[in-house]
Amino acid sequence: MSAAALATAPLERPRRSQFRMLLAQTRMNFVWYFWRDGEMIFWSLAIPVFFLVVFSFALGMGSAQRASAFLVPGLIAAQVFSSGFWGVGAMLATFREKKLLRRVYLTPLNPWTFFSALVLYRMTLLAMQATLLILAGALVFKVHVVGNPFAVLGILALGAATFVALGTVIGALVKTAESANNFASVLTVPLSFLSDAYIPINNFPAPVAHALRLLPSTQFVDAFRGIAIYGEPIWHYAGWMGALVLWMAGAIAVSARYFRWI
């Protein structure tokens, strides 16, 4: 295009809309970081279902169905941890290290829109993971989600928000992508084992189990499982949910203070 063409081309320029950017960015995140990444598809969808099937038989809780009822919410919760720590926290550190954030920072895309699009992409993926695990549990082991759907979604959203906030603390405090990824793995994997997600912490000595119940991850897993699978009322867990809110607020405060886009 020549200069003259440039000058006369009708510049169709609708108002910039952060909402439109959010949708477009979320869609591209999904395509770039999930759809075109075979390893990601495998680890985020196939592996949890594989774990569900194998662990349900291996866990030895009397019956595979009982084990599965324990594992479906536990595995979903583990995905919540990894969405936050790895999917959001370590990802942001990686974006920054690859100097990708500084390019985006120079465009009218609001940094918050960029952040929200990353979270929205991970939440879409989390919804897919949860649906897949719930379907597998129902079809293979006749495990059913009996809780009030609003209560189930509410506690899941609260947990996701808390662990996304905790994840951004990694993105804020850790300098390199490599150590952010290490932190994310070191948090996600042990927490999944120590927070009543993969194995019942009642198997540990009582004082240890008590101590582990102080972890926000354990509180989230138990609240989610109680509400979704055992049909307990949400107010049962009001205290723990309050604790999650405090963790989230603290994490947001730390991230807001230390997070650097560039």
Binding site: R13, M21, P108
Partner: peptide, 15 residues
């Protein structure tokens, strides 16, 4: 193409 279109979105371009 995706990058050009996405960056276009940042500036309110449709095209």
């Amino acid at each position: 193409g995706e990058l050009l279109r996405l960056y276009g979105t940042y500036y309110g371009l449709r095209g």
